[in-house]
Design a protein around this nucleic acid. Structure first.
Lengths: 192, 192
DNA sequence: AGGTTCATGTAACCCGTTACATGATTTC
DNA sequence: GAAATCATGTAACGGGTTACATGAACCT
C-alpha cells in the first residue's frame, strides 16, 4: 500500500558544472563539440570531463533548453561539423550563475566550480564584479577556516598521524586559497 | 545492421570514493549507517555525501560484495540498528586500494581521493607506507607542477585577468600541497 | 592501400541527488 | 501529547563513464 507519489516533477532546472563550463567557453567563441573536447583535453580544465559521451549529450541538452544553438557547417573540402554558439538566453543564464551568492555554494565541496565561475567572470559580469566576488570569498574563507583549524588542533593524539595530516592538507588548501584571493584582489585594485 | 554488442559485461568491480570512505571508517570502528552519516555531517569529510540515499545503498552493495557484514542489534529499550563491520575481504580490498600506484590516480582530478587514501594509510598499511606515499607524491607533484606553471606564464595578456587568476589558483593549490607533503614527510622522518 | 585524425554520435550501466516514507523513542 | 531525534529505508530521475560505432578526409 501507500501510493508513493512524486508529484513534484522535480523541475530539473539546475545545470551541471560541465554544462556551465561549456556555456562559458561558448561565450568566448563559437565552437564544435570536437573543439570543446580538444580544449578540455589540452588545458588544465580537463577535470571537467573530456569524454564525448558527456560532452555531446550535454550540448544537446543545452540546445534543447535554448541556451545554445547550432548549425551544421559544410565547408568546401572539409569535414562537416556542428558549430555551437551561445544564445541570448544562454547569456542570461551564464550571468545568473556567475552572480550566485557565494555563501550558498558550499565552499567546502564546490571550490572547483567556484573557480570556474571566477574564471569566466571578467567577461560575463565585468571586472568590478570579479573584485567583489574576491572580497566575498575572502570574507567567507576568513570565517570558515578557523573551524576546521580548531577541529584539527583539538584532535587527540589517538588519531593516527596520517589522518591528522590529511585533515591538515584540507586546511592548508583553504589557507592558501585565502592568500591567493588576497593577492588577486590586490591585482584588481592596482589596475583600476 | 550492426548488432551493437556489449559483451564485455563491464565487470563493474571498481568501488566509488564514497564506498572507500565507508570501508575506511568501518575499519576503525563498527558502525551503523546512521553513525556513518552523522560522522560525515559533523566532520570535514562531509564532502563525501551525507545523504541517506547514497549511504544506505552503498552499504548494501558493499555487503553484497562481501566486503562488510552486518547484524541487527536489538538493544534493550533502544532502537534497533544495523551494525556494519569490515570483513577480511574488506580489509584486503582496503589494502589494495591504499597501495594503488599514485601516478595512475590522476593528481589533477583526484586529489580528494588521494587524501582520503592517505588519511587511512597509517592504519591500513602502516607508517612506512605512509612515508613512502608522501615521497612518491612529492616526486609526482614536482614533475607535474611546472607544466601548468609554464602554461600560465605563457598565457598572453589577451586572456582576461580572472581567467588567468583562476588558473593560477589551481597551481597554487598544487604548490601548497607540495609544501604540505614535504612538511608531512619530515614529521614521519623525525618520528622514527 | 592503409592508418591516422577529424568529427559526431549512441547504448548500457551505475551511482548520487532529491524527495518521500515510516515507525520508534526521547524530550519538552 | 507534540516535537525532535533516532534509524532505516525506497522510487524517480539525471547525468557521467565506458565502450562501441561510423564515416569522411588527409597523409604515406
Amino acid at each position: 500500500m501507500s501510493t508513493q507519489r512524486y508529484n513534484t516533477l522535480r523541475t530539473m532546472e539546475a545545470l551541471t558544472t560541465l554544462s556551465f563550463a561549456l556555456l562559458g567557453l561558448l561565450q568566448q567563441n563559437p565552437a564544435s563539440g570536437y573543439d570543446l573536447r580538444k580544449f578540455f583535453i589540452s588545458s588544465p580544465m580537463k577535470s571537467f570531463s573530456d569524454s564525448p559521451g558527456a560532452i555531446y549529450p550535454a550540448l544537446r541538452r543545452l540546445e534543447k533548453k535554448g541556451l545554445i544553438r547550432s548549425q551544421v557547417q559544410d565547408r568546401a573540402g572539409l569535414r562537416r561539423r556542428r558549430l555551437f554558439r551561445l544564445t541570448a538566453a544562454g547569456q542570461v543564464e551564464l550571468k545568473r550563475w556567475a552572480s550566485e551568492d557565494i555563501s550558498k555554494t558550499d565552499i567546502v565541496s564546490d571550490m572547483k566550480e567556484l573557480m570556474l565561475r571566477f574564471g569566466f567572470m571578467d567577461q560575463v559580469l565585468g571586472r568590478d564584479a570579479s573584485a567583489q566576488f574576491l572580497r566575498k570569498l575572502i570574507a567567507e574563507l576568513s570565517t570558515y577556516v578557523p573551524s576546521p583549524r580548531a577541529y584539527f588542533e583539538g584532535m587527540g593524539e589517538e588519531i593516527p598521524l596520517s589522518g591528522r595530516l590529511a585533515l591538515e592538507s584540507g586546511i592548508v588548501h583553504y589557507e592558501s586559497t585565502l592568500q591567493w584571493a588576497r593577492k588577486a584582489l590586490a591585482t584588481y585594485e592596482r589596475a583600476r
